[in-house]
């Protein structure tokens, strides 16, 4: 997994199978940066996620709550149809923005 910080935006790029086991690592690494207080936008890059279950939804939901508290935002791109289906099922698609690519995600206000 890699995390890129671009100004106030943070791009989280998980790789492989996003389950409960992996979710714990993502959460830890991401929050270490978020809690410094400079991030206003969290972007998830799902391009290299081959599998995801509802633990991935938990990870997005948790980061959304952190961003919501400081009036920040959460976006995602690179999600395959299965991941999109899970995001829609959870109702998260009402509060996060699904973008076609990284550029568009960075442009979201």
């Amino acid at each position: 997994m890699t995390i890129d910080v671009m100004g106030e935006a943070m791009i989280i790029r998980p790789k492989g199978e996003l389950d409960h086991h992996y979710a714990q690592e993502i959460r830890e690494k991401a929050d270490k940066i978020i809690l410094k207080g400079e991030i206003r936008k969290v972007i998830f890059d799902f391009t290299n996620v081959l599998f995801m279950d509802s633990s991935g939804i938990g990870v997005i939901m948790g980061r959304y709550r952190l961003m919501e508290a400081i009036k920040g935002s959460v976006c995602a791109f690179g999600a395959n149809e299965r991941i999109k289906r899970l995001i829609k099922m959870s109702g998260l698609s009402r509060v996060i923005t699904l973008c076609p690519n990284q550029q568009k995600a960075l442009e979201v206000k």
């Binding site: 509802s54 633990s55 939804i57 938990g58 990870v59 959870s90």
Partner: peptide
Amino acid sequence: ERSGMGFT
């Protein structure tokens, strides 16, 4: 941070 969606 369990989403509560497992059974669903």
